[in-house]
């Protein structure tokens, strides 16, 4: 896989993850610290189907979508909704998603040990690249991940902008109280966003082993990139997740590679440092992310200075 191919694949997956994170942040106002583990959950669904039923990981995408969505729903209904009903603060909700992350890590870890026992092959460290094939000289994952991201984004925007449910959804994102007064059931939008968030994350998780090795605790490593992508774009805007995902994804893989040609390969280990630096720069310059900046105002200010 060439560097640019890898960068595109990685950014596509990052966008899937950060769109989900942003969706749930907009509707529930809590950053989900377990988003990375949602992805690893998807990876293990595909691994199970591959090991036990010999289903190619690409064909397991629908299963990941549905099971991941159910996981998202379960998380909202069982963990967050009871806390929100008790009027828990944002910090308490964040801590509950940290706890959820640990529970998921425990479940995934114990599942991986059990799976290894059943399939007589270690499941605590795996990669799908041997199962990938070439299409027109390029790896298939490039096409598959691009197809998945375009279809998901297209469907999401169609839903948000062309259906009545989408109007209600956007209304309750903009102003939940007002939407509720107008008869929109805010609960539905939350259920929907958690389902979609889990589903998109699990699909990303199915495709992630084509690019990097997965261990049960991979979620803790990629969460930094997911947060960086969402915050760089703007946590309160779905378009921001798209933009941020590509910015962070490209700087992480592309910039690191280019730096490594100058500074030596040792720097390749520091790809997450790059996303952290990007995150901090954006937080200092534009705390609400790129889409949170009032660009018209910035341009107007600049032109009035001259």
């Amino acid at each position: 896989m060439s560097v640019i191919e890898g960068a595109i694949v990685y950014s596509n997956l990052l966008v899937l993850l950060s769109v989900g994170l942003t969706l749930t942040y907009i509707t529930t106002a809590v950053p989900n610290f377990a988003q990375g583990s949602f992805a690893v959950f998807g990876s293990y669904i595909s691994l199970t189907l591959l090991r036990l039923y010999k289903i190619h990981p690409y064909y397991s995408l629908p299963f990941s979508f549905i099971l991941g969505g159910l996981l998202g729903l379960a998380v909202y209904l069982l963990i967050l909704r009871p806390l929100i009903k008790r009027e828990a603060s944002v910090v308490i909700l964040m801590i509950s998603t940290l706890a959820l992350d640990l529970i998921l890590l425990g479940i995934i870890g114990s599942y991986s040990d059990s799976l290894a026992e059943i399939s007589h092959k270690s499941a605590s460290r795996f990669i799908f690249t041997p199962y990938d094939f070439d299409i027109a000289g390029m790896s298939a994952i490039l096409f598959v991940s691009t197809l998945v991201i375009s279809l998901s984004i297209f469907a999401l925007f169609l839903l948000l902008y062309k259906t009545k449910f989408g109007v209600a959804l956007r209304a309750s994102m903009e102003n939940p109280d007002l939407a509720e007064v107008m008869g929109v059931n805010v609960e539905y939008t939350r259920l929907f966003s958690w389902f979609l968030s889990g589903a998109l994350a699990a699909m990303a998780g199915t495709l992630l082993p084509f690019r990097q090795e997965i261990v049960p605790s991979t979620g803790a490593i990629i969460i930094v990139s997911i947060f960086a992508a969402s915050i760089v774009g703007g946590l309160a805007n779905i378009n921001g997740a798209l933009l941020g995902g590509y910015i962070v994804g490209f700087s992480e893989s592309f910039l690191t590679y280019n730096l490594s040609t100058i500074l030596g390969t040792g720097i390749l280990l520091y790809s997450k440092v790059i996303s952290l630096v990007v995150l901090i720069i954006v937080l200092i310059l534009a705390p609400r992310g790129i889409t949170g900046v009032n660009w018209r105002r910035v341009i107007w200010k600049k032109s009035s200075l001259q």
Partner: peptide, 26 residues
């Protein structure tokens, strides 16, 4: 008769404990 390492059980246990503290005794 756990078919896995006990450390995973520890994670699940402490994660749940945290959740119940948040829910019932914040």
């Amino acid at each position: 008769h756990l078919p896995f390492e006990a450390v995973w059980l520890e994670y699940i246990l402490f994660g749940l404990l945290m959740y119940f503290v948040l829910l019932y005794r914040p």
